[in-house]
Design a protein around this nucleic acid. Structure first.
Length: 562
RNA sequence: UGCCGGAUAGCUCAAUUGGCAGAGCGGCUGACUCUGGAUCAGCAGGUUCAAGGUUCGAGCCCUUGUCCGGCAGCCA
């Protein structure tokens, strides 16, 4: 909890508000919480929320709770509790011993509901969901009072007790707050506090058949935990008057809710419903598909928690609706992986090279830097031989202007090895290049020429004899439109799915990666960052491309073809 | 036609209680390099949504308007 502090953190409207609260004595400490509902896997948008909540607690020397907002047994499941805990822990967030469940407060919430009934501020309502909907009015017209609104306190107490005692079926009755059916804020029109649900709860079992609604429960949870600042997304702004109303009527400790804009990203989707549809529609391979912005997907793809944290820091926080271009995220991933990922050579589209003057059958081991950015990373030995593979794209029979790589008669450097010169291009009957015959200069071992001559390009390679075959999964944006929901009449976002979001190729990789465990991250030099997939095993290697390297050559080439 | 928000550089955000509109990313140019990567340096980029008002002074306060988002689950 030391990597962030007040001085080094740029401020934002949330931190300013909190500073003000502290200054004015509204609160004397800072205590935040992250309150996910365990009904889905977390995505990068949640990561932003986590880093706002946790980051603020750290910055102000306060505390942070992880709390499951598990008030709806129909949607929630232990599976998601476990997944969310794993994800939040993976992000590097420390909630110490403060892992809580809203469901542990049900008894207290019940008592408070009884209190509100006694105050004449809540009543049992027999309206059906349909009737209640009609009586609510509309966005521009007031609602009408429930016929059950004026039941006596005694009757309400009795009925509410019977609700709890399982005397009624689902939906037969609700407990509602008695506020104002003509309020311009629909959420203040006698909102439901309890509904009947004969369903098993993942922590409570069958103890309860009435469950508190979000609006009733959330402020109470915050209050019980001594949270000072209940930070949530913009959609809850309109709920704040209700949040305040319950706390004020109860006269209990009153945290402050402040809302911020949630994270959206272009070229992807960020909703539980769509994740489910994409998985069930087989558009992706699961919730941890590396193309999904779920934390499980990002983790599998090879993204580091540090990159996510830095991304969240850079995008900041405001009350704007915004959609971030994924290039900003990719930049954060590169920045972190550049510092930490071991370099390795891999050829994804092989072209055979035969060194005609290299001794037949000989293999020598070239010393290679594991990470030029990190001297501590050490070196490794990479086998070199007479027959090599280079990248197809690193050879052009007719080089375009400013093409510095290999072409007939040109000399280039093979990384960590020798200079080679291309002498002969072997083709098949169709004119397709089959292989290159080159010579190497033994004087240039290690990469420098004793006579001081320079080459413009350095290329990666693997020795044919010792190369490992690997499946490499190349990912692109899941959607081909910045806004996947931008569709023609009658179509939905799935029509914007990018057909090329996953491309599987076979590559040759240097043998040092042989026993790499799933999750291990590498930089394939000059190509990008890759991560060993969980499908990988002793007999077949599988890599995911996390992100490509920044490619300035691609830019130059594009500019030239214009 | 209701209520609650929002609008500052291409993108995301800043701008002490009203006081010279800045940063990161992106773009462009150059340097350097055993990754055409990384790194470094420089440059360009703005009618702060519009119109009015208050003020010595407005991105900030007031009024009106425009555009965008959210809100009518017994979801959260």
């Amino acid at each position: 909890m030391s990597d962030s502090n007040l001085e080094s953190t740029s401020s934002d409207f949330l931190r300013e508000a909190i500073k003000q609260d502290l200054k004015e004595g509204r609160f004397t400490k800072v205590h935040t919480r992250f309150p996910p509902e365990p009904n889905a896997y977390l995505h990068i948008g949640h990561a932003k929320a986590v880093w706002i909540d946790y980051g603020i607690a750290v910055d102000f020397g306060g505390k942070f709770n992880l709390r499951f907002d598990d008030t709806n047994p129909l949607k929630e499941d232990q599976e998601f509790v476990d997944g969310i805990i794993e994800d939040v822990r993976w992000l590097g967030v420390d909630w110490e011993d403060r892992l809580f469940f809203a469901s542990n407060y049900f008894e207290q919430m019940y008592d408070w509901a009884v209190e509100l009934i006694k105050k004449g501020k809540a009543f049992v309502c027999d309206l059906t969901p349909e009737q209640m909907g009609e009586a609510r009015g509309t966005i521009t017209s007031p609602g009408t009072n429930s016929p059950w609104r004026d039941r006596s306190v005694e009757e309400n107490l009795d009925l509410f007790g019977r609700m709890r005692a399982a005397e009624y079926p689902d939906g037969a009755k609700t407990l509602r707050a008695k506020i104002d059916m003509s309020s311009p804020n629909i959420h203040m029109r006698d909102p439901v506090m309890y509904r009947i649900r004969h369903a098993e709860h993942h922590t409570q079992g069958n103890k309860w058949c009435i469950y508190p609604s979000y609006d009733w429960a959330h402020g109470l949870e915050d209050s019980i935990e001594g949270v000072t600042h209940s930070l949530c997304s913009l959609e809850y702004e309109i709920h704040r008057p209700l949040y305040d109303w319950f706390l004020d009527e109860l006269g209990i400790y009153h945290p402050r809710q402040i809302e911020f804009g949630r994270l959206n990203m272009t070229f992807t989707v960020m909703s539980k419903r769509k994740f489910i549809e994409l998985v069930e529609g087989k558009h992706v391979r699961g919730y941890d598909d590396p193309r999904l912005p779920t934390l499980a997907g990002l983790r599998r793809r090879g993204v580091t928690p540090e990159a996510i944290k830095e991304f969240c820091r850079r995008i900041g926080v405001s009350k704007n609706d915004s959609a971030i271009d994924p290039v900003h995220f990719e930049e954060c991933i590169r920045e972190d992986l550049n510092k930490t990922a071991q370099r390795v050579m891999a050829v994804s589209s092989p072209l055979k090279v035969v060194l005609t003057n290299y001794p037949e059958g000989e293999i020598e081991y070239m010393e290679a830097n594991n990470n030029p950015e990190d001297p501590e990373a050490g070196t490794r030995k990479v086998p070199f031989g007479k027959v090599l593979y280079i990248e197809k794209d690193d050879f052009r029979e007719v080089p375009p202007p400013k093409y510095y790589r290999l072409s007939p008669g040109k000399e280039v450097r093979l990384r960590n090895a020798y200079f080679i010169t291309c002498n002969e291009v072997i083709k098949d009957e169709n004119g397709e290049v089959l292989e290159l015959h080159c010579t190497y200069d033994p004087q240039t071992r290690g990469g420098d020429a004793p006579d001081g001559r320079k080459v413009k390009a350095t290329m990666h390679w693997v020795a044919a004899e010792t190369a490992l075959k690997a499946e490499v999964r190349l990912y692109e944006y899941l959607f081909s439109k910045a806004d996947p929901d931008d569709v023609e009449e009658g179509k939905d976002y799935t029509s914007n799915l990018n057909p090329d979001s996953l491309k599987i190729i076979e590559a040759f990789v240097e043998p040092s990666v042989k026993d790499a465990k799933p999750g291990t991250r590498y930089q394939f030099e000059r190509q990008g960052y890759f991560c060993v997939d969980k499908d990988s095993n002793e007999t077949s290697l599988v890599f995911n491309r996390t992100v490509t390297l920044r490619d300035s050559w691609a830019k130059i080439e594009k500019a030239q073809t214009k």
